[in-house]
């Protein structure tokens, strides 16, 4: 016996409703967050239970060498490492800025008022259009992407991406390799000639991102460490992005673009840190 198929009218009505939903949630500052908030409240306990169940099974099989207390401690230590790494980068940046430039260039280097929020990655990208990561830190934890975006770094303080949207319990993160991601950057140790680093569709396949808009005379060579410049208002200066792996020049020998290998190991990324309440000084 074959069951009755859906009526054409039902299909048409549902399609129109979903298209309306799509248009509404695609508009900037639209109802996307409310919908996510509502279902986030339902999914949150489910996710928690599932994660707990997975953790429980994992703990059972690794009970001898990795007990639960140790894992909690590791989580705390990872928080601590992230905070300390952030402080090291911060302090290094301050020293450099003081010694080399004597505060003449007014670069954004200070994270005095920044708070680092550790968060676990709930899921990664699922496909070409579903290409954002979800992390377990949302408005309940003090994030609000409708006001400003936040830089996301890994435990070595290397750039991971930025917060795209926030919901009550979780947020979506736009990763560094995504073609919509861009950040102002410079060569580490050099305070002039900033350029843009962004994701690229083809380079993403190789786990690389692209450096472009490179001003003439920028001292750039293979192996250079690229860090954020501090311009743009979202990312503080000095966050490591990646290492230059190749340079592409124009016919007249001018460097046009470069390929950058991110320092962040996206294949082994389980935990990230969101930098919040950063007060930029210019």
């Amino acid at each position: 016996m074959k069951r009755r198929v859906p009526r054409v009218m039902v299909i048409v009505i549902v399609t129109v409703a979903l298209l309306a939903l799509f248009i509404l949630t695609a508009l900037p500052g639209a109802t996307r967050s409310r919908l996510g908030d509502f279902f986030g409240g339902i999914f949150e306990p489910l996710t928690k239970t599932f994660k707990r169940a997975i953790d429980g099974i994992g703990s059972f099989f690794t009970a001898v060498r990795d007990n639960k207390d140790l894992r909690i401690r590791i989580g705390e230590l990872e928080d601590e490492v992230g905070r300390l790494n952030r402080e090291i980068v911060d302090n290094n940046e301050k020293v450099k800025a003081y010694e080399e430039l004597k505060e003449a260039l007014n670069l954004v280097t200070k994270f005095d008022d920044s708070k680092v929020l550790g968060s676990v990655i709930l899921n990664e990208a699922l496909g070409p259009y579903h290409d954002l990561m979800r992390i377990k830190a949302g408005r309940k934890h003090g994030l609000d992407a409708s006001v400003t975006s936040y830089p996301v770094v890994d435990r070595h303080s290397a750039l991971v991406g930025r917060v795209h949207s926030t919901e009550t319990y979780s947020s979506k993160v736009l990763p560094l390799l995504h073609e919509a991601f861009s950040v102002s950057a410079r060569v580490d140790g050099s305070y002039r000639s900033t350029f843009r680093v962004r994701g690229d569709v083809l380079l993403r396949e190789q786990g690389l991102c692209l450096g472009d808009n490179i001003p003439e005379g920028t001292p750039l060579k293979v192996g250079d460490l690229i860090v954020t410049s501090g311009e743009g208002g979202i990312f503080p200066g000095g966050i490591p992005i990646g290492e230059v792996v190749s340079l592409q020049s124009s016919e007249d020998g001018k460097i046009v673009t470069c390929s950058i290998k991110p320092i962040c190991d996206f294949d082994n990324l389980n935990y990230v840190f969101v930098i919040v309440e950063s007060e930029h000084e210019s």
Partner: peptide, 22 residues
């Protein structure tokens, strides 16, 4: 669920899923 987990908005994943199931 796809839209919620990793989508740029809501609706596209639902439409695609609906037609596949249909």
């Amino acid at each position: 669920l796809r839209d919620y987990m990793a989508g740029r908005g809501y609706g596209v994943g639902m439409l695609a899923g609906m037609f596949i199931g249909l």
